[in-house]
Design a protein around this nucleic acid. Structure first.
Lengths: 144, 144
DNA sequence: ATAAATACTACTAATTCTATATACTATACA
DNA sequence: TGTATAGTATATAGAATTAGTAGTATTTAT
């Protein structure tokens, strides 16, 4: 399961993507619009900012805006910042690999083999889908 | 992430699959062989039994054995018993659907749309892979 | 300069999930 | 009748998740 943190992160980036050519948007506005607890969202936006996805401006008239083109922000990157691993088993993770405690022969583990396949399928989708894609999916869903 | 519960469940079924034509296998033997905490494994096996995957026999000489052909036990089914949903977002789940609290327009949600795609890709693999497949993957991994 | 708006930081807290243990019961076999 | 085994229910410790509280720092507008 995706954590709420990650879901909120994607939602915020989508909103900011739609807002791309306008002045910075305030946390409270994003929170209200997307029904996200404000203080939780603050933490999330900070993580995204520290990861270089967002630009922030303090003071009156301040807020957040995207620091990259929505086409260049892929769901994989977001998920790896907020949730961590993509794989369903640590021993099948690329970026957060960890040997299973109880495993005796990892190289010949059939379970690992299957979940590497699952990881690759998931990864393919998530690394091909950008914030811009999510936005365009939404508009085509509305018009259909 | 897959819970340890699910991982242990699959491991136990694989061991029992290899043991298919022999007398029932005791919890403690499975636990020892796969390095799974015994009491935790008891619960798991019980769940699998109640779901119809296992046959159990009490008393001396008792134990667990598969109640189905290893070819007919698919990873999806196991996961739905132990972990629950396959989808990464509740609103994209087939068997454990739940509307997102904060969502305003589910039908036009781009995030949901992407994660339905991810779910389908995952589901395809997990519903095509049986315990028998996992076992045969293991032997081909060993010989290669 | 002052006040208002806003992001930033740190700490706390409730709730849920995970992984396991404890204790007891029921059943089968020898 | 004793022993080995599964069955069941409950408890628990720890971690992670999801927030909430309170206060600080910075910028802008007046």
């Amino acid at each position: 399961m995706l954590s709420k943190k990650t879901k909120y992160a994607i939602k915020a980036l989508v909103v900011l993507g739609k807002n791309a050519d306008k002045p910075p948007m305030q946390i409270s506005k994003i929170a209200e619009e997307e029904r996200i607890p404000k203080k939780f969202l603050e933490q999330i936006l900070l993580d995204l900012r520290n990861a270089g996805f967002l630009y922030s401006k303090k003071g009156a008239g301040g807020g957040y805006s995207l620091n990259k083109d929505p086409k260049d922000i892929y769901l994989v990157h977001i998920m790896r910042i907020t949730d961590g691993p993509i794989a369903m088993v640590p021993c099948a993770s690329l970026n957060f690999y960890h040997k299973c405690d109880e495993c005796k022969q990892e190289t010949s583990c059939g379970i690992r083999d299957v979940f590497i396949e699952v990881r690759d399928a998931t990864l393919k989708i998530l690394s091909e889908t950008s914030i811009a894609d999510v936005i365009s999916r939404e508009s085509s869903l509305i018009s259909s």
